[in-house]
Amino acid sequence: ETGKELVLALYDYQEKSPREVTMKKGDILTLLNSTNKDWWKVEVNDRQGFVPAAYVKKL
């Protein structure tokens, strides 16, 4: 879809709370919100949640 910003997972991340999502290094995720410098909201496999901003980079 146009207008979607994507990020690349630089590291594996295992969710530690229900508000977070698990990702694997190399995953491409849809970026939903990056206003917080530490935690970015992403969508992966129809799930939305937060990942550490340092673990992903914008494509």
Rank of each mutant, 00 (worst) to 15 (best):
E1H: 13
E1A: 13
E1P: 14
E1V: 13
E1G: 14
T2N: 14
T2H: 14
T2I: 13
T2Q: 14
T2Y: 12
G3V: 14
G3I: 13
G3T: 13
G3Q: 15
G3F: 14
G3L: 12
K4N: 09
K4T: 11
K4W: 11
K4Q: 11
K4R: 14
K4I: 13
E5I: 15
E5A: 12
E5G: 10
E5C: 15
L6Q: 10
L6P: 04
L6T: 08
L6N: 06
L6D: 04
V7Q: 01
V7G: 13
V7H: 04
V7D: 00
V7T: 03
V7R: 02
V7E: 01
L8R: 09
L8T: 07
L8C: 09
L8P: 00
L8F: 09
L8A: 05
A9K: 01
A9M: 02
A9R: 01
A9G: 03
A9Y: 01
A9T: 03
L10F: 03
L10I: 10
L10Q: 04
L10E: 04
L10V: 07
Y11A: 10
Y11T: 08
Y11M: 11
Y11P: 01
Y11L: 09
Y11E: 09
Y11Q: 13
Y11W: 10
D12V: 02
D12E: 05
D12Q: 03
D12T: 06
Y13L: 02
Y13M: 01
Y13P: 00
Y13T: 01
Y13Q: 00
Y13V: 01
Y13E: 00
Q14E: 14
Q14P: 06
Q14H: 14
Q14M: 13
Q14G: 07
Q14I: 14
E15T: 08
E15M: 13
E15P: 15
E15K: 14
K16Q: 14
K16R: 14
K16T: 13
K16F: 05
K16Y: 05
K16D: 06
K16S: 10
S17P: 05
S17M: 08
S17G: 13
S17N: 12
P18V: 10
P18L: 09
P18S: 12
P18D: 12
P18N: 10
P18Y: 08
R19Y: 13
R19W: 15
R19N: 14
R19S: 12
E20M: 06
V21S: 02
V21R: 02
V21K: 02
V21E: 00
T22G: 08
T22Y: 04
T22N: 06
T22R: 05
T22V: 03
M23H: 01
M23Q: 01
M23W: 02
K24G: 05
K24N: 08
K24P: 00
K25R: 11
K25M: 08
K25Y: 05
G26F: 05
G26Y: 06
D27E: 12
D27L: 05
D27F: 05
D27K: 04
D27P: 00
I28K: 05
I28C: 06
I28V: 11
I28T: 06
I28R: 05
L29D: 00
T30N: 08
T30Y: 11
T30R: 14
T30H: 10
L31H: 01
L31Q: 00
L31M: 03
L31G: 00
L31S: 01
L32S: 03
L32C: 07
L32Q: 03
N33I: 08
N33F: 07
N33Q: 10
S34I: 06
S34C: 12
S34T: 09
S34Y: 08
S34N: 08
T35M: 10
T35G: 11
T35C: 14
T35Q: 14
N36V: 05
N36M: 09
N36C: 10
N36W: 07
N36H: 11
N36D: 15
K37Y: 08
K37T: 11
K37W: 08
K37S: 12
D38W: 15
D38L: 14
D38R: 14
D38K: 13
D38S: 11
W39H: 03
W39L: 03
W39D: 01
W39S: 03
W39V: 03
W39Q: 03
W39E: 03
W40L: 04
W40M: 03
W40T: 03
K41L: 15
K41Y: 15
K41T: 08
K41G: 05
K41P: 01
V42Y: 01
V42W: 00
V42N: 01
V42Q: 00
V42G: 00
V42F: 00
V42D: 00
V42C: 05
V42S: 00
E43K: 10
E43V: 10
E43C: 12
V44M: 15
V44Y: 15
V44R: 15
N45T: 10
N45R: 14
N45F: 11
N45Y: 13
N45D: 13
N45M: 12
N45Q: 12
D46Y: 09
D46H: 13
D46E: 12
D46F: 10
D46I: 06
D46W: 07
D46C: 13
R47T: 07
R47H: 08
R47G: 04
R47K: 11
Q48T: 11
Q48D: 06
Q48F: 07
G49W: 03
G49R: 02
G49S: 02
G49A: 04
G49E: 01
G49L: 05
F50E: 04
F50R: 03
F50M: 08
V51P: 00
V51Y: 01
V51L: 02
V51D: 01
V51Q: 00
V51H: 00
V51N: 01
V51K: 00
P52N: 02
P52E: 02
P52T: 02
P52V: 02
P52Q: 02
P52D: 02
P52Y: 03
P52I: 03
P52K: 03
A53G: 04
A53R: 13
A53T: 06
A53F: 02
A53L: 02
A54H: 12
A54C: 14
A54G: 10
A54R: 15
Y55A: 10
Y55W: 07
Y55G: 06
Y55N: 05
Y55F: 12
Y55S: 10
V56Y: 02
V56A: 03
V56F: 05
K57M: 15
K57L: 14
K58H: 08
K58I: 13
L59H: 05
L59S: 04
L59C: 13
L59R: 03
L59Y: 09
